[in-house]
Design a protein around this nucleic acid. Structure first.
Lengths: 217, 217
DNA sequence: GTCAGATACGTACGCCGTACCTAAGTCAGG
DNA sequence: CCTGACTTAGGTACGGCGTACGTATCTGAC
C-alpha cells in the first residue's frame, strides 16, 4: 500500500488539535479522526504517543522564524529570543511539551544554534558562552511558561489570578499584593525588559579568572 | 466515620511516589495503595486528580527553606533563588507540575513573596520590581526544567545527550557542537553564574523614563 | 502473473479517572 | 443508652486512553 500520509501531515493536524483543544484534546483517536483514519494507522508513522509529542515539538520548533545574522550580535540575540517568544505565544498549549521533551532533532536545535551563534559573535566562548546561552534560553522558557501556559487553566475571569492573589494576600504577602495589580496592568513588555536585563548582565559580568581566554566586549 | 488521613499524609505519600516512580507513577490507585486504602476513598479528601497534583505542588513549595532576610538584598535574592533551586533539585520529577500549575496557595506563594521582598529591599518598586521579579523567577523555572527535568527521560548513558547532539551536529550546528562537551563537563555551576548575570543586569539596567519613581541603587 | 513487503485498520486488553452507591463508624439530643 | 443524622470508607462499573496483535489490502519487481 502506498503511504496515505506524510509525517508533515501528522505534525500539522496534531498541532492544530493542540492549538484548538489543548494538550488533553490530542489523543491517538482524535488525531486519527482528524486524518479520517483509524487510530492504529498512526502507528505506521509514529512509534508511540510519546514519539507523537516529540513530533509536535518539532513542528513548533520549525515555525520559529530564525532571523538572518547581522553585524550586531546584541540585536541578533534579541531577535532570536524574540522569535522563540513569538512562536510560543502563537502556540501556548504546546509549551509544556516543548519544555519537557528533549528532542535533539534538527528542527528543535536550529533555534538553539542561532542563539548560541549570536552570543558567540559577541565574543563569548567556552564556559562563558555556555552560561550565557543557558541563561537566555532558561529565561525564554521560563517566562513562556509563566506568562502563556498559565492562562490555559484559568477559569474565565481574565484578571482572576490577580484577584485571587489579592484575596489570599491581605497583610501576609505584602510585596506580592503590591505587585499583583501592576502585573495585571503591565502584560506584554516583561519579556522585552527582562531580556534587556539579561543582555546587560551578560555584557557587564566579568568572567571569573578560571574561564578567561580571550578578551570580550 | 473518623477521617483516616490528613491532607498532609496524602501530600507526603503522593510526593514520595512522584520521587520514586515519576509523574506517570502517580495514579489514584497507586496513591491509594500506598495509603492502604481504595482509590475512591481519596475523593473524600481531594476533588480530582487535578486537585491532587496541586497538592503535590503545594508540598514541594512547602519544602523550600526560605532564608531570613538580612541587610544585604543581593545576598537575600540569591539565597531565595538558591533555595528554590535546591528544592527543585531534590524533587526533579515534580518540576513539570510546579511549572504548569497556578496554585495560588499560601505555601506556593511564600517563596515568591520572599523573592519579591528581597528585590524590593534593593530599592526596586512598581514596574521595575515586577520585571526583575519575573526575570529571576523565569530563569529559576527555566533552568530547573532544562537541567533537571530533562534527565528523567534519558536512556541510560549519562552523557548521551552531548553525544547525540554531536552526532546530529557535524558541521551543521557548529556552535552547539562546540558547546556540547563544555556543557557536559560543566554541570552544576550554570545556575549560580546565570543568576550572577541576571543580578548584575538588574543592578545595571537603567529604568526607562516612564517607570522612574525613586532613584535606586 | 505472482509474490514479498509495506500499509491500513479492526478487535481487544489493561489501566486510567471517576460517577454512583452502600455499608460502616461517629456523635448529639433525648 | 438509644437513635437518627451525618461523615467517611471503599466497592462496582463505565467510558476513554494507549497500544499489542492479527488480518486484509494494496503496490512494485521480476
Amino acid at each position: 500500500m502506498r503511504a496515505r500520509f506524510t509525517l508533515a501531515d501528522i505534525q500539522q493536524h496534531a498541532l492544530a488539535i493542540v492549538d484548538r483543544d489543548g494538550l488533553v484534546g490530542l489523543t491517538m483517536r482524535s488525531l486519527a479522526g482528524s486524518l479520517q483514519t483509524g487510530a492504529m494507522t498512526l502507528y505506521n508513522y509514529v512509534d508511540s504517543r510519546e514519539a507523537l509529542e516529540e513530533l509536535v515539538v518539532d513542528a513548533v520548533s520549525a515555525l520559529v522564524e530564525i532571523p538572518e545574522p547581522t553585524d550586531d550580535w546584541l540585536a541578533d540575540t534579541r531577535a532570536v529570543a524574540t522569535a522563540l517568544w513569538r512562536t510560543f505565544r502563537a502556540h501556548p498549549a504546546a509549551i509544556p511539551l516543548v519544555l519537557t521533551r528533549r528532542t535533539s532533532s534538527r528542527a528543535s536545535l536550529a533555534p538553539a544554534e542561532a542563539l548560541a551563534a549570536a552570543l558567540a559573535r559577541g565574543g563569548l566562548d567556552g564556559v562563558d558562552l555556555f552560561v550565557a546561552f543557558r541563561t537566555v534560553s532558561a529565561f525564554v522558557m521560563g517566562i513562556a511558561q509563566n506568562e502563556l501556559a498559565g492562562r490555559l487553566s484559568h477559569e474565565k475571569d481574565p484578571a482572576s489570578a490577580a484577584q485571587r492573589i489579592e484575596g489570599l494576600t491581605q497583610g501576609v504577602l505584602p510585596t506580592l499584593a503590591e505587585l499583583a495589580p501592576i502585573g495585571a496592568a503591565f502584560t506584554g513588555q516583561e519579556f522585552e525588559r527582562g531580556l534587556t536585563i539579561i543582555l546587560n548582565g551578560i555584557q557587564r559580568t566579568p568572567r571569573p579568572a578560571s574561564s578567561r581566554r580571550t578578551p570580550h566586549v
